[in-house]
Nucleic acid binder design. Structure first.
Lengths: 337, 337
DNA sequence: CTGAAAGCGCTAACAA
DNA sequence: TTGTTAGCGCTTTCAG
């Protein structure tokens, strides 16, 4: 309870505080006998250095910040798991910032780097504005974007256009012509993947000579329930689609629920393909576009760690790591009836 | 890049640093005009106080630590989500410590409180030893256990005995007599729930006059794959069980996979009941024992926050919040063939 | 209401 | 090798 400081240890060991500090930091220039004395005193006093003091004095926090949107989103969780797995075996602590509201977004993106709260920053699925990117660069703290893009920042991304293309193309190859795209809000300026997958979707359509039918594109807040409602809406249409490409597996699940509830069989009456390949996707035999969620966290963290090693941090050419996507065919897709 | 400090702001505003500090901390004793001047200077200089300095000076870190075992475990994630949801709207930051190896367990449980890295600590699903509990109490930092128990510490727990009892009893009521229990390692000294659910299982058996057959209890590392293997093993037995009570939903899923692969139908040939009611459980129509995972995080965080308010922290009588369990009947259980 | 000055506990020159 | 000392940037008495 009563705090024991470096001074107490020094006194107890009969040395100066600098010596204790040296022992603490494994400096080689301490006589072995002295080191032992100090170590003993530390042990006896049950001493452990105060982090805050250390941080202030060193100008380093020994922690890495991770900013995530909607921590409840399974794909975000999976990415975070990848991050944790590598940070865990580094000397850094992990500080988690969850952004649920847009207002908080601004606060974090602005303050975290300025307050020197962390030595490095990982940002998941949040696209910074030019101004924000500017701030990061100016702050001098290394940042890596995961599943987000900015031309001037390091990033780990997925080729979402290609992914959307693959999904749609597969549906077309099965013989579908009426293919819907169910997604998050397309207009969200910070969600690039929604638009990229949409682009891939349209590209595949066009290539096959199919015209894009705007009424087949539904958007709403992300989540199973909103998707379920969109599914219902789709099925109520006079000329309903025979296949749905969902922006995420979570949304695909909602669509399937809607179909099932309407007495339709999947894939018999409706084919559904998702995106992400989250854990449940496998259980549910969901056909989907696999992307390396966990891997993206791993790669992003590694990249950040190396950036943090190089004092001349910000490279003129940001590094981009592009992860592949892969079509995983399971049991929710089939030729149209 | 060049750090602007409180001194710069003071100079710019033509006041002393104490005044700037007062403005920063919303002290009422600052003339309005002065405050404005300072605020202006802050704005112009794009100043933001250094956290480390603040922490050292105040002796508070304004952060809460969360220690979790196996961050990949879905039930742990769900609890963490509950925690995040309340910490998020508090002034505290969240520092995440993931323990994958037992060795790291000791390091964290010992060091985190000693180093004054956090103002409060949440520990998920890790039962502290008496000695560790002692350390926590001595450190003076408020701690709340979630899904773990120690008589001297605050905690949010679930009645696992009752849960195990409910699950087993339900199976018995359906007419099953040969009921297996598939679980994590029973001997893990830090995993109390495994033993508690086991106890409930045996109690239900006994109450129904069924004898406990040791060969029907299989244990292994937690996870889908190990459970899958245990499922296979169970089904190879000369007199296989007709129902399985799995320690967790994750394990239940593994069991179902094993059964399905063996050409057995669930619940036709084998009934399976899980525990937790994780998200996938619903998709899979898994009969399970629901426990309020998210809620446990919420309640635990709230409790911690109130503990942190009261300076006379450690109450002589630790507070215990007991969350209920509930049997959720879905489609993986039925009377024996 | 405001400023000067004394720490918070540690690291890192600089001397010795 | 070691000890002394000057900060790190902020909060908080204590005077005024």
């Amino acid at each position: 309870m009563t705090t024991v400081t470096i001074r107490d240890v020094a006194r107890r060991a009969g040395v100066g505080i600098a010596t204790v500090s040296r022992v603490l930091n494994n400096s080689p220039s301490v006589r072995e006998s002295t080191r032992r004395k100090v170590l003993e005193a530390i042990e006896e006093l049950n001493y452990s250095p105060n982090q805050a003091a250390r941080r202030l004095s060193r100008g380093k926090t020994m922690s890495i910040g991770v900013i995530v949107p909607y921590f409840t989103n399974p794909s975000v969780v999976k990415r975070l798991q990848g991050i944790v797995s590598v940070i865990n075996s580094s000397p850094y602590d992990l500080v988690l910032f969850d952004i649920e509201k847009v207002t908080r977004r601004d606060v974090f993106l602005r303050n975290v780097p300025r307050q020197k709260m962390v030595d490095g920053l990982l940002i998941i699925s949040l696209t910074p504005t030019d101004e924000e990117a500017e701030q990061f660069l100016a702050s001098g703290i290394p940042v890596v974007l995961i599943d987000a893009f900015h031309p001037r920042m390091n990033r780990v991304i997925v080729d979402n256009v290609a992914g959307g293309y693959k999904a749609t193309k597969y549906l077309i190859e099965l013989g579908h012509q009426k293919i819907a795209y169910v997604s998050d809000f397309l207009a969200d300026p910070f969600n690039t993947p929604v638009r990229d997958r949409f682009e891939g979707y349209k590209k595949a359509l066009q290539e096959a000579g199919l015209i894009f039918r705007p009424e087949y594109h539904l958007q709403d807040k992300h989540g199973r329930l909103p998707a379920y409602k969109m599914g219902k809406q789709l099925l109520r249409m006079p000329d309903p689609p025979t296949a749905v490409f969902a922006y995420s597996d979570t949304q695909a699940i909602g669509i399937i629920e809607a179909a099932t509830e309407n007495g339709l069989s999947v894939p018999g009456d409706l084919s559904v393909i998702g995106f992400d390949d989250i854990e449940s996707a496998e259980y549910l035999h969901l056909t989907t576009v696999h992307q390396s969620l966990f891997e993206s966290g791993v790669e992003g963290s590694k990249l950040l760690l190396t950036q943090m090693q190089n004092p001349d941090a910000i490279p003129t050419n940001p590094i981009e790591i592009k992860l592949p996507t892969e079509l995983v065919i399971r049991k929710t897709t089939a030729p149209p009836a």
